[in-house]
């Protein structure tokens, strides 16, 4: 099958990539566009670290053929990170020691971003439900839950 051009909006900018059929969004982000904040974990939809937002919804980029998101809006961790300083969710993760090895963090932060966008004041149960698909092996989740609650407070008072 020949390669074809796929156009989509990435972090506010229109991009075009030349891809073989079924090339995943994860591969396009990391290997074609060199945006490596989106991590590559299990590559079978089991760990959540590759999560990005597609039209505001968290999606597993390792399972997503890039043709499927043609013309749509994709936001990665790079897209929410300001040029200087950190996004309030990132700052809350930093301040609450919610990052150890950091491998799960990009995916968890994107899931929390999507959650807080539609539900600015979630309960702890709602946060747990949101991040249930994200594997964290270091923190025991407790600092991540605290960070998410802290991020909600910061964004509401901003």
């Amino acid at each position: 099958m020949p390669s074809r051009i796929v156009a989509f909006n990435l972090n506010g900018r229109d991009v075009e990539v030349m891809v073989k059929p079924l090339t995943t969004l994860q591969t396009v982000l990391r290997e074609h566009l060199h945006l490596t904040a989106t991590k590559s974990g299990c590559r079978q939809g089991g760990c959540g670290t590759c999560t990005v937002l597609v039209n505001g919804e968290p999606m597993l980029s390792c399972l997503l053929p890039v043709e499927d998101i043609a013309g749509q809006k994709v936001v990665t961790l790079e897209g929410i990170t300001p040029i200087e300083g950190l996004h309030p969710i990132q700052q809350a993760f930093f301040d609450n020691y919610a990052i150890q090895c950091g491998y799960c963090s990009p995916g968890v932060i994107m899931v929390i971003k999507a959650l807080l966008d539609r539900n600015p004041n979630p309960t702890r149960q709602e946060i747990m439900d949101a991040i249930a698909g994200n594997v964290c092996r270091c923190t025991g989740y407790e600092p991540i839950l605290r960070a998410a609650e802290d991020a909600a407070r910061r964004l509401q008072s901003a």
């Binding site: 991040i131 407790e142 839950l145």
Partner: peptide
């Protein structure tokens, strides 16, 4: 595979 290897998630977090 990793997807089938069972590990706990946030719902299993006990009071620590």
């Amino acid at each position: 595979s990793f997807s089938e290897y069972i590990i706990p998630g946030p719902h299993e977090l006990p009071h620590i």
